[in-house]
């Protein structure tokens, strides 16, 4: 099954279990069914629960928050991850805060789904991976899917959490097959790659090539929970090898790699080699080859791993 189909099935499942669930976002109505088709068929099946909204990201997240505060489970879709900046006040100052600042007397079962990532030539404002700006906000859980662990199960988990979740999907991942058997674990791998989201696929491909071409065992450990980070998962993975890499599609500074390094070092785990592979520190060009040059790739990962030996 493809990622988009799993997510869609999961949405149908969530709706079936709780018929008061609300799904809202831009251009969701059938037959279009959302820009990336995750909600396709949903508005035909549940016409009273699917709200197509104006182009009003802050508004739609705020409306969703109000519904969630009154006991609904709400799944909001932001068409492109880049537009999350427009929702920042609603997510950071309101959704993330309400439970705590109101003394745990309320909560908001609000999931904001959005696709990040480049590789499609959409240019500087439709290709970014800016989820790091929303990580480390107390009260806001950030999750990211990858196609090697069930995206549908993760979405179900997000909807059942009962608290605000920023749920990161990936544009080019939607049409990929869900392939859990491509994640390989080793007792003592030559290198460990901690990663998340769309670039997980690059890591898995690099690991497969490194095994074939260099006889190197590389364990790819995708992280689905970005904030708060699962310290045990990260530390256990990092402790398996002297070489620890992180791969993220966003830029490197103040990013996933830094957060992973903190988790590892603070636990007294000191790998011989630690390296973060990320996008170049520039906006994302529209020109296709240029874009591919600045983003992480299978080749970059493979070269970095080989160079570490």
């Amino acid at each position: 099954m493809r990622v988009v189909e799993e997510l869609r099935d999961s949405l149908f499942g969530i709706m079936q279990r709780d018929p008061s669930t609300i799904v809202l976002g831009e251009d969701l109505l059938d037959p279009y069914g959302g820009a990336f088709k995750v909600t396709q068929g949903l508005s035909d099946a549940y016409p009273n629960n699917v709200i197509t909204t104006p182009i009003s990201e802050a508004g739609l997240v705020g409306v969703g928050l109000g519904m969630a505060l009154r006991g609904r489970t709400v799944l909001a879709e932001i068409m492109f991850g880049d537009f999350l900046t427009l929702t920042t006040d609603q997510l950071v100052n309101h959704a993330a805060k309400v439970k705590w600042m109101f003394n745990d007397a309320v909560d908001a079962s609000l999931v904001v789904r959005t696709p990040m990532g480049g590789g499609r030539g959409y240019g500087p404002t439709h290709s970014q991976s800016i989820e790091k700006h929303f990580c480390g906000v107390p009260g806001l859980t950030v999750m990211a899917v990858n196609q090697f662990q069930s995206p549908g199960d993760l979405l179900k988990e997000a909807a059942e959490l009962g608290s605000p979740v920023l749920f990161i999907e990936n544009k080019i991942m939607y049409s990929k097959l869900v392939e859990p058997d491509r994640l390989v674990s080793y007792d003592r791998p030559d290198a460990v790659i901690l990663t998340y989201g769309g670039v997980t696929e690059f890591c898995v491909q690099a690991a497969e090539r490194l095994l074939d071409d260099e006889e190197l065992t590389v364990e790819v450990v995708p992280v689905q929970h970005l904030s708060p980070l699962p310290a045990d998962l990260i530390r256990t993975a990092a402790a398996k090898s002297d070489r620890v890499f992180t791969v993220e599609e966003g830029t490197v500074s103040w990013g996933f790699g830094a957060a992973v390094a903190e988790e590892i070092l603070s636990a007294g785990i000191t790998p011989h080699h630690f390296q973060s592979i990320a996008a170049d520190p520039t906006a994302i060009p529209s020109a296709r080859n240029w874009e591919l040059e600045i983003l992480p790739s299978v080749d970059k990962i493979e070269r970095a791993v080989v160079a570490s030996f």
């Binding site: 609300i22 705020g62 928050l65 109000g66 519904m67 505060l69 006991g71 609603q90």
Partner: peptide, 9 residues
């Protein structure tokens, strides 16, 4: 916006 959402709910 939350006031709007709550009113709808």
């Amino acid at each position: 916006a939350a006031a709007v959402g709550a009113a709808l709910a």
